[in-house]
Design a protein around this nucleic acid. Sequence first.
DNA 1: CCACTATAGTTACCTAGGTAACTAATTTCA
DNA 2: TGAAATTAGTTACCTAGGTAACTATAGTGG
Lengths: 137, 137
Amino acid sequence: MNSHELFHTLHQLSRHLTNTLNEALKPLGLYGSQWSVIFVLKSKGSLTQKELCEYLFVEAPPMTRTIQRLVKQGYVLQVPGKDKREKLIQLTDVALKMFPLWEKTVIETNQSLMKHFPETSQEKLFHLQKSWLQQLL
Amino acid sequence: MNSHELFHTLHQLSRHLTNTLNEALKPLGLYGSQWSVIFVLKSKGSLTQKELCEYLFVEAPPMTRTIQRLVKQGYVLQVPGKDKREKLIQLTDVALKMFPLWEKTVIETNQSLMKHFPETSQEKLFHLQKSWLQQLL
DNA sequence: CCACTATAGTTACCTAGGTAACTAATTTCA
DNA sequence: TGAAATTAGTTACCTAGGTAACTATAGTGG
């Protein structure tokens, strides 16, 4: 094992997971990146764009783009925040109604992705990656 | 730990590694994806585009783009292969001369990325990733 | 031989993430 | 108070990976 291999498998895994989720959400008209935003909003309630960026570790421009797309789809609203700069993002009723279906799809996809990967391995993987990431940031 | 967290951490790590490498290679006029192609060509010698795609697990169109960019930069040549469809990709003398510097940069970056991540953990992580990936593909 | 199928690479277009630059608004501090 | 610095979000543009469709070439089998 050298670092090339470590990095390569990591990137490859990431891409594979992304592509599989996108494929699963495609019939529902969503992409993984949009689901991530929706999921966070559902879990934590309305957030500012800044908070979304911080939570999901995504830079502002792509977050703007994702949110604008979700606004266009009618799944989120941009509501003025505590001052004139700030925008609060919240889920619409449409999104709340759709959420269970989206969630079901994601959970099934994730389970299928991890079907043959033991839970102990998942836990180990998570902790190793989290540990690495934490010392990087 | 739930699958959202596992996936999120993984993607985040992947992005961080990619961005850090790109930043390091930027002064040398290279991107990580180009380096990957160069590295494989240096390791294994001339390969067809198809072989490069297979080795790096990238679809043909982005590989075409990366190669075309490398051709424009004068780092690779496209040489006719065994039939009229096939193109062999090989490193130019310029690239061979530059390679040590590129490699040094990449190695230093990688080492810095892993500085506080013990080698035993790296090995464990690699094997977990590889194991998961193998049952997915 | 030739129609059909498969293959290698390309083009067009999509999403996603990033940086740089920018605008408008807010905060800071002399 | 007001200039300078900071902040929240946007615009422009870049790279990277993907799918669909395509072109030219090669292989297959009746």
